[in-house]
């Protein structure tokens, strides 16, 4: 089977013949996709806020959209990092802010309120994915109050710690005597 990584192997080094199972679970892949989506959306919001506000009939809120863009980018980077769970929860919170901002624009005199309703639907769908991914990628570290095995008998000194201390003192005494 062809493996891309074999192309960059130094000549003579072992090459992959058959890949083993990956540690990545479907929820990790979902988190990764959401991370990149977040960065993509953030870039659009940051660089083209007017396009966004015009589509939603919310002209005048460009600064808010740009701020949300920065938030999306940061949450995306966090989601792609080792701390993906924190990033996903940040995205869930961000989805709430997005929904609140959209609801504020859902007024009777807004000619684009249909677009806002569509956007709200999308935010709802993405929020469900964010929530699901955040639930599924919870860190598996044991809680602080979990019962742990203790190792009080693992000194590492087969002759006992006192013997180790005595030997060390003896060496120090000999060294001092040698200096004087």
């Amino acid at each position: 089977m062809f493996h891309f990584s074999n192309i960059v192997r130094t000549k003579g080094d072992p090459k992959i013949v058959e890949g083993g199972p990956s540690l990545k679970r479907p929820e990790d892949q979902l988190a990764r996709a959401l991370g990149w989506f977040s960065i993509g959306l953030g870039v659009v919001e940051f660089f083209a806020p007017r396009r966004v506000t015009e589509t939603l009939g919310m002209e005048g809120h460009e600064t808010l959209v740009r701020t949300f863009g920065v938030r999306e980018i940061l949450a995306g980077i966090m989601t792609l990092s080792v701390e993906k769970n924190a990033g996903l929860w940040a995205r869930v919170g961000g989805d709430g802010l997005d929904a609140a901002a959209l609801l504020s624009g859902l007024t009777a005199d807004n000619p684009k309120k249909g677009n806002i309703a569509l956007a709200l639907l999308m935010v709802g769908g993405i929020a469900m994915l964010d929530y699901r991914a955040a639930q599924d990628t919870k860190p598996q570290r044991p809680p602080r109050d979990a019962r742990r095995k203790l190792y009080p008998n693992r000194s590492g000194y087969p002759k006992g710690i006192e013997s180790a201390r005595t030997a060390a003192k003896q060496i120090a005494a000999n060294a001092t005597a040698g200096r004087t």
């Binding site: 090459k15 992959i16 013949v17 058959e18 890949g19 083993g20 990956s22 990545k24 990790d28 080792v82």
Partner: peptide
Amino acid sequence: ALVWHGKEDIRCDTVTDPEIQ
């Protein structure tokens, strides 16, 4: 061998045996 495939992704792959170089 345990092979690095990316962040948090190490796999037990079958690879070619090393040779005297």
